[in-house]
Structure formats: C-alpha cells, structure tokens
C-alpha cells in the first residue's frame, strides 16, 4: 500500500480545488458577462463577445443601460410585484406545508398514508397539464375584497399566490425532515402536557431551521421565475411580475444592453435571499447526507 505523504496529499488537495474552481467559474461567468454587458453600449457589447473582453469592464462603461431600462419598463413595480408575490407565497407555503407534514408524520389518523401518497404523486404532474383547468377555476372564484364580493381572480395578486401555497415537493421535504426527528421528543412533549399545536410551535418548528431554509429557497426560486402562469392570468401592468416584464425588452428594437441591465437588476433579490439563507441551506444539504 502506498504511503500517503504530505506531498501527494497537497497535490490531491490542489487538484480538488482546481476542479472546484473550474465548476465555480463555469457557473459565475454568465453572471459576470451579464453584469459587464449591462455597462456597455450595444455596438461594443456585440463586438466584445468575440473575445475575453466580454467578461471585463473595458471600453465605454456607463450606467446608461440602467436608466434606459427604467425608462422602457416600470422595473421597480415589477420587482415589487415579484418580491411581494414570492415572499407571501414562500411564507404561506412554509406554514401550510409544514402543518400538513406534521399531521402526516406525528398525528395518527386513518388514511394518512393514502393521502400522502396522492400528494406525492402530484410531483410527477407537469404544471402545463393543469394550467388550463386552473385558469378556468381561477377565472370563476369569488373573492371578498375592499370592493365587496367579486367573481374571478384574474389580474390580481392572489391568483399568483394561492395556487402555489401548497405543493407536493415542499410537503415531501418537511415530511422527510420530521421523520428524522427523534420520536421521543414528541412523546416527551405530550407527556409534559403539550397540545399538538404547542408541539408544532415549541418543539418541532424550532428544530426545523435547515428544512425551512431549503424549502424557502426552492420555493423562492420557483416563484420568482414564474412566467407561464402570470402570463396567462395577468394582463394588467400593475400586477405583472419581473419575468413577464422581460417582454418589454423584446419588442421592436431589441436593446441587449438594456436587457442585461434589467436582468442584473432582477437578479439582486435572488442573490440577497440566497445569501441570507445560505448557511442554513448548506447545513440542510449536509444533514441530509450525514446522519448524526
């Protein structure tokens, strides 16, 4: 057996880092390209793509594209809409799906296996197949708002939020995590006199940090990137989210610099959200592989 010397240990470490750096570069270069291009006029942007200059802040650099993007589309409104819809959906989804998973894992009731199986089966149903029925249902649902009872949810925030509050994947994540919690903790809480609600709030949820972060990030990305559904149900500009707003830049004259500026702007909330939850997210990924 070959001895592991400090030399070849160092080499192997270097090789490993080289691979990791390469992967990181592959992932980060499109972002750098986007950011750099957003600072360049269209003519230079297109010629720069023929060389590595595409990734460097060289030539005629300015924030003009950003100003132009704001002139062409209500970027602030779109980002606000997306953040509002995404934020509310994430919050509601964490509450609803964790409660559902709690009932599936800890409460003993007839038929829970069947219901859970049905919910998990929805994971294989593509959204496109239910989009039209969902549209027809949404178009006729009643809503109680400031104007009294109205019918039809089209052109609203709720039509972008409510259909996505409960989903199989998020429930599945919570179910898996709850199953790994020691059952004796729940029993101890029951013996101490805690109600189901108290067990959920005081014992289970405080221990659910990692899965909350994972579910939140996955949900955030899915919601923030919504395109088809808002395109179908929102015709008014005041409810339009960022991804649909991208259309404003593909009409008549296509300004690549402005598109890059717009994309850079709408990437900011995603990065901010990820950085905010990064530590918990990584902890969660690690904990799914390594049992303590």
């Amino acid at each position: 057996m070959a001895a592991i010397t400090s030399d070849n240990h160092g080499l192997r470490l270097a090789a490993r880092y080289a691979v990791l750096v390469l992967i990181a570069v592959i992932f980060i270069f499109p972002l750098i390209f986007m950011l750099m291009s957003s600072l360049k006029p269209d003519q230079q942007l297109l010629t720069d793509t023929e060389s590595l200059r595409a990734f460097l802040p060289v030539g005629d650099i300015s924030l003009d594209n950003y100003f132009a993007a704001f002139r062409r589309a209500p970027v602030g409104l779109f980002v606000f809409n997306s953040v509002l819809v995404t934020g509310l959906t994430v919050l509601l989804s964490l509450v609803v799906c964790s409660l559902a998973a709690f009932a599936f894992v800890f409460v003993d009731w007839r038929g829970r296996e069947l219901v859970l199986t049905l919910i998990l089966a929805t994971l294989i149903v593509p959204f496109e197949t239910i989009a039209i029925p969902l549209l027809l249902i949404s178009a006729n649902l009643p809503w109680i708002g400031l104007e009294g009872v109205t019918r039809g949810w089209l052109n609203s925030y709720q039509v972008q939020i409510v259909p996505f509050v409960a989903d199989g994947l998020t429930i599945f994540l919570f179910v898996q995590y709850f199953k790994d919690l020691p059952g004796e903790l729940i029993e101890a809480a029951r013996v101490e006199g805690a109600s189901w609600w108290q067990i959920y709030r005081r014992v289970v949820m405080p221990l659910a940090g990692p899965v909350l972060a994972t579910a939140a990030i996955l949900k955030f990305l899915a919601m923030y990137n919504q395109y088809l559904w808002p395109l179908m149900v929102v015709q008014q500009e005041r409810y339009r989210p960022v991804m649909v707003g991208l259309q404003y830049f593909f009409q008549l004259n296509r300004a690549w610099g402005e598109i890059m500026a717009y994309l850079s702007l709408i990437t900011v909330p995603v990065l901010a959200f990820y950085l905010f939850l990064q530590r918990a997210f990584i902890a969660s990924i690690a904990s799914t592989g390594v049992k303590g």
Binding site: E184, L185, A188, A189, G193, L207
Partner: peptide
C-alpha cells in the same frame, strides 16, 4: 385519558430533552 392528565412523568432512554 391523555398522558398529561394521568399524573405521570416519564424519563426516556434517549433522554428526550429539547436540544433548542
């Protein structure tokens, strides 16, 4: 009766103390 109304307290093998 549910556990809380039985006037009992239980100590578990895994201790079951709340880690948080």
């Amino acid at each position: 009766l549910p556990p809380k109304d039985r006037s009992i307290a239980m100590v578990f093998q895994s201790y079951a103390i709340f880690p948080h």
